[in-house]
Design a protein around this nucleic acid. Structure first.
Length: 125
DNA sequence: CTTATTTGACCTAGG
DNA sequence: CCCTAGGTCAAATAA
């Protein structure tokens, strides 16, 4: 469309300028193949051979230095999941949120026997 | 206030 | 010695 000179400027209606990523889609579904453990993402890199970003996660448990690699496809499908290491304690209960600021200090601590899941795997190669 | 998450920078290993 | 690839850390931000 000819005519018109560069004098229109950008009057775009910026409803609430999102300097950062606000429109992140409220995903009510899962976030990333949650396996019951709590992971803290510590990095994301793009590996060769796969045009997919690889996410690096680490168990947020004390004394549990287990790492986990999550590779996703362009469709959001997990192409590969890799668990590095072994958990030193059983799976945490679905009782998310265990603030560290509040010391338990014997507060009706229900000892949930770690029996629910003991995915032992000697991996007989 | 505290923790989880994000992103770029930095580090190590190999050729 | 330089470059690539992969892996980890740390500051900033969001909830």
């Amino acid at each position: 469309m000819p005519a018109e000179v560069g004098t229109s400027e950008m009057h775009q209606i910026n409803s609430s300028e999102n300097a950062t990523q606000e429109t992140q889609i409220e995903n009510v579904a899962e976030k990333s193949a949650e396996d019951g453990y709590n992971w803290r993402k510590y990095g994301q890199k793009h590996v060769k051979g796969s045009e997919n970003p690889r996410s690096y996660y680490k168990c947020t448990h004390p004394n549990c230095e287990v790492k986990k690699l999550l590779e996703r496809s362009l469709d959001g499908q997990v192409t590969e999941v890799v668990y590095k290491g072994r958990h030193n304690h059983s799976k945490p209960q679905p009782n998310r949120r265990l603030a560290a600021g509040a010391v338990p200090s014997s507060q009706g601590e229900e000892r949930y026997d770690g029996v629910a899941t003991i995915e032992d795997k000697p991996s007989n190669i």
